[in-house]
């Protein structure tokens, strides 16, 4: 008799499984979790802390907060930050001071660990929430974070 019992139980479990998928089939419109990605670009908002790429914010006078202390360069495990600096005469104080020439960021080598941003004492670099990082040429992934002709924001000290 267990032969027929097995068949009965087997069919019952199969129907139970089908009821689960069937339920979702009927509610498929509501339950769809797919994002219509390129269409919803306008409404798509990433979380504030999302690590997209490292950026260096500039204010309206084309000034940034990077003093060139190279702490980020040291903190980076992959060598994706390179800072080219020079000692120049500060026009305000007239003293020789460390100034960045280029803050180079290799996005292609970055693992988004966030250690550089933790290490930065002046909050010069931040995370941007941009995640569309693909480019046609690998060279484009090497970015210069400070804008051309930008200066250190006055009052930012190491």
């Amino acid at each position: 008799m267990s032969y027929f019992g097995d068949i009965y139980r087997g069919i019952k479990t199969l129907l139970t499984g089908m009821s689960v998928t069937g339920k979702y089939f009927l509610h498929s419109r509501k339950g769809a979790i797919t994002q219509q990605y390129p269409d919803n670009r306008d409404t798509l908002k990433m979380f504030d802390r999302f690590r997209g790429e490292v950026v260096m914010p500039h204010n309206e006078n084309n000034e940034h907060r990077c003093t060139g202390c190279q702490k980020c360069e040291l903190a980076c495990p992959n060598g994706s930050i390179e800072i080219i600096w020079d000692r120049q005469i500060d026009p305000e104080s007239g003293k020789k001071k460390k100034m960045i020439d280029q803050h180079i960021y290799h996005l292609g080598m970055c693992t988004m660990c966030g250690l550089c941003i933790e290490a930065c004492p002046t909050d010069a670099i931040l995370w941007a929430q941009n995640f569309e990082n693909s480019v046609y040429n690998r060279a484009y992934l090497t970015k210069v974070l400070n804008k051309p002709g930008s200066k250190l924001m006055p009052g930012v000290e190491e």
Partner: peptide
């Protein structure tokens, strides 16, 4: 299949 799997 998509409707069963909560897709579109």
């Amino acid at each position: 299949a998509a409707w069963f799997q909560l897709r579109i």
